[in-house]
């Protein structure tokens, strides 16, 4: 079947303003949007630029805005969006565009780094493993699935409009450790999240939960962090 992809193009080396360009490509209904992008790049226009690696939804490279919604191009099948109309593809919003669908990820990773996204422990290290009950392990399972693709953060209207808010992913990254029974850095981490530009900026629009390609209940995680702050 033939589909039209309408792609937001921008190469700051050559032009001042982004523009839309349409490509018609032949695809199978079960093809991924990533396959269609590859067909364009490999057979039609080699200058089309996007990131990708694993091509099956685990590396987090190819988050983009497809028909107005943040998704991974490798996890979105053509048949699962309406292929009779042009499929729009744009870079994720809220991060500077470097070229076509490639954005500068540094502000996103900087936000992640700011929440101490690593296990903090105190006391003596045991010789064997730290014990953890199955239910304690289950407590933070959802937020361990994060692949740092930025689909959640760049779907958040607060993030778009507020240059300071560090966005849903950073809170997910903090949640993963706050609720890990082995971690001793919770108080410090919660203080970071209690900042004026922290977790309280969330307006509970659920865009992030809808956008997460890993099915993480992002908004719920944010609410759990808020509750932990209230009851600490």
């Amino acid at each position: 079947m033939d589909v039209t992809l309408t792609i937001r193009r921008f190469n700051p080396e050559t032009v001042d303003e982004p523009s839309w360009q349409s490509f018609e490509v032949s695809v199978q209904p079960t093809d991924r949007v990533l396959d269609a992008l590859h067909t364009i790049k490999w057979e039609v226009d080699g200058t089309l630029t996007f990131r990708r690696s694993c091509a099956h939804g685990v590396c987090g490279s190819d988050a983009m805005r497809i028909n107005g919604r943040n998704r991974l191009a490798c996890k979105t099948l053509v048949k699962d969006i309406d292929p009779t109309k042009p499929i729009t593809v744009e870079p994720i919003k809220g991060l500077p565009v470097l070229k076509d669908l490639v954005v500068d990820m540094e502000p996103f990773f900087a936000a992640y780094r700011s929440v101490m996204p690593f296990l903090v422990t105190d006391g003596h290290e045991p010789t064997r493993e730290r014990l953890q009950s199955q239910s304690d392990r289950e407590r933070f399972d959802d937020t361990t699935k994060c692949i740092l693709c930025a689909a959640c953060t760049t779907s958040c209207p607060v993030y778009w409009n507020d240059g300071q808010y560090f966005g849903p992913q950073a809170i997910v990254g903090a949640h993963r450790f706050i609720f890990d029974s082995r971690d001793a850095g919770g108080a410090e981490r919660l203080e970071i999240l209690n900042d004026r530009e922290g977790v309280w900026r969330c307006r509970t629009t659920f865009n992030c939960t809808d956008a997460c390609p890993r099915g993480i209940e992002v908004t719920k995680a944010i609410q759990e962090v808020k509750r932990a702050l209230i009851f600490r």
Partner: peptide
């Protein structure tokens, strides 16, 4: 190598006794 990863925070699945 496994114990190092656990101490770094890797969330291994656990036995009913809480071991890896």
């Amino acid at each position: 190598a496994v114990l190092d990863l656990e101490k770094m925070g890797l969330p291994f699945n656990r036995t009913p006794e809480g071991r890896i």
